[in-house]
Amino acid sequence: MNRFFALWKREVASYFVSPVAYILATMFLVVMGVGFWFIANVRLMSGATFYELLRALFGGIGWVAVLMVIPVLSMRSFAEEKRSGTLEMLLTAPVRGGAVVLSKFLGIFVVYVMMWLPTLLYFPMLQHISGGSVEIDVGALAAAYLGVFLLGGFFLSIGLLCSALTENLIIASISSFAVITLIFLAGFLPEVSPVPALRRFTEPLSPILHMLEFGRGVIDTRAVVLYVSSTLLMLTVTTRLLESRRWRA
């Protein structure tokens, strides 16, 4: 546990000693802020309810921010260690590959969560702007954030795997961006597919629909299980990949 905590602490700290986290957080909050401003001005004036605003924020503009931030947030994790050679120091220490991967994942996950935290301020603001006509549903809000964190966790684990595959940061970020975007775009299939069977099959898998549901305040356990297990799968694959140099002949 001691070892794991040391790894995790180092991982989180590494983001804050370099400008990466600050630049990303700024970028993220600018995009979210502009989105929020737009939603608050345009949608609110046209009489949208709290739930509609929530869906617009999390199911709409939130995606842009997530697709932008996650590949950059996760690209350094293994690629940088490989490039600088510190992976050799890490893997020759008596720590399990699983602990290394999990600590890195929880490290970037915490940074990701921290980026979202300032957006909590939007809601008291929303209430203020609307002059009290918008009621804040805390339960729905919590569900929306849960959705953002579940999907974020899954995408971060994809980013981690991409990072473990290369020692080039650009390749790591572009490949994870490609994979995540592909998954995002596949989320439109239930709506655009001309084949009814494909529509039925992809509907329970669509991250876009999931996000809209979470944004409505609905926690679908199928979606929760899907993202948690997919994340664990990605982390397991990353661990195997990392340890393969030890057992691969």
Binding site: S14, V17, G85, T86, E88, M89, T92
Partner: peptide, 12 residues
């Protein structure tokens, strides 16, 4: 173990 290239975290 000290690797040949002596890799270290330069930000620590």
């Amino acid at each position: 173990y000290l690797p040949e290239t002596c890799p270290l975290y330069t930000d620590m």
